[in-house]
Simulated assay, not measured.
Amino acid sequence: MEGVVRSVGFAPVKGMRHLDLDHVDLDEQGAVGDRAYCLVDVERRRVLRTVQHPSLMSIVAESYDDDGLALTLPTGERIEGQAAASGETITCDYWGRAVDLALTVGPHAELITAQLGRDVRLARAPRTAVVFGDPITVVTTASLRQMGGEMGVEAARFRATLVLDTDDPWVEDTWLGQEIDLGGATVRVGGPVPRCTVIDHHPETGEKDARILQSLVRQRPTNRSGEPMFGVYATVTRPGRVGVTR
Rank of each mutant, 00 (worst) to 15 (best):
T50C: 05
T205D: 11
D167E: 14
H108E: 15
L19V: 04
G68N: 01
D100F: 13
V120N: 00
P12A: 03
T140F: 09
T113K: 11
G76N: 12
I59S: 08
G190P: 07
L216A: 12
R145T: 14
A70G: 04
V242M: 04
V244H: 04
R195Q: 09
I180W: 04
A129Y: 03
G81Y: 07
F158R: 00
P239G: 09
T141S: 15
N223G: 13
R44L: 05
P192S: 12
E88N: 14
A123K: 14
S86C: 14
A129S: 15
R159H: 08
D65F: 04
S58W: 02
G117Y: 00
L216W: 07
R118M: 10
R97K: 15
V244A: 02
H202I: 00
T245E: 08
M229A: 10
L176K: 03
R97H: 12
G33E: 04
K14A: 05
D22P: 05
V120E: 03
A234Q: 11
G206W: 09
R35C: 01
V232C: 01
R195G: 09
G68S: 07
A114V: 06
A156F: 11
M147N: 10
L26R: 03
V217R: 15
L122P: 01
A185T: 06
E77T: 02
L39H: 05
E80T: 05
C38W: 02
A114E: 02
H53W: 03
D20I: 13
V139F: 05
P194F: 10
H202R: 06
V163H: 10
H18I: 02
Q82E: 11
L182P: 13
I199Y: 03
T128R: 10
V40F: 08
